[in-house]
Each structure stands twice: as structure tokens, then as C-alpha cells.
Amino acid sequence: MHEEQWLAVIDKHVATVAPELAGGLSTLDCSLADLGLNSIDRAEVTTLLMEEFGVAPPIHELGGVSDLRSLVTLLGRYL
């Protein structure tokens, strides 16, 4: 997937979880926390992304994610 496609699908789930924070995503070089999502919102968006793509990386690998780029890289490995 291209970066623009990842940004679009992440933003869709941000809009589901925290509508007031949607539309503010322009790069994968930031974290969901940078967007203003709290810890529960971040876990929720990550789970929605996993469910959308039907992938379930091990929890310990998800724990190593530092920004959106590392998150999509991880998800992409399991696609």
C-alpha cells in the first residue's frame, strides 16, 4: 500500500474512535498520541486496523511500535 492509502485508512479509524481528531493526519512520521488520541483510543485504532486487514501481530511486537510508520511496517509484514 502507498503512504496515502495508509493515511486514508488510519484517518478513517481515527474518525470512528475520536471524530474531533480526524482529518489532521498528513504523514506517517508521527504517532497517534501526537494526534491527541488517549491510550484507549490508540489501542482501539490499532485493533480496528488489525481487524480491517485481518492480521494479528504478537502483542510484544505491537509494544515496539513508536510511530505510524513502524505500525504500518509491522502490519504490512503480516499481510
Binding site: I40, A43, E44, T47, M50, G54, A56
Partner: peptide, 13 residues
């Protein structure tokens, strides 16, 4: 339904 697809998809909320 999420659980049946994969328990990892259950809402953390």
C-alpha cells in the same frame, strides 16, 4: 463476531 474472527480483534475499550 470480532472474537470469532480472531480474539485479537476484540475492542480494547
Amino acid at each position: 463476531a470480532s472474537w470469532e474472527r480472531n480474539p485479537a480483534f476484540v475492542s480494547p475499550r
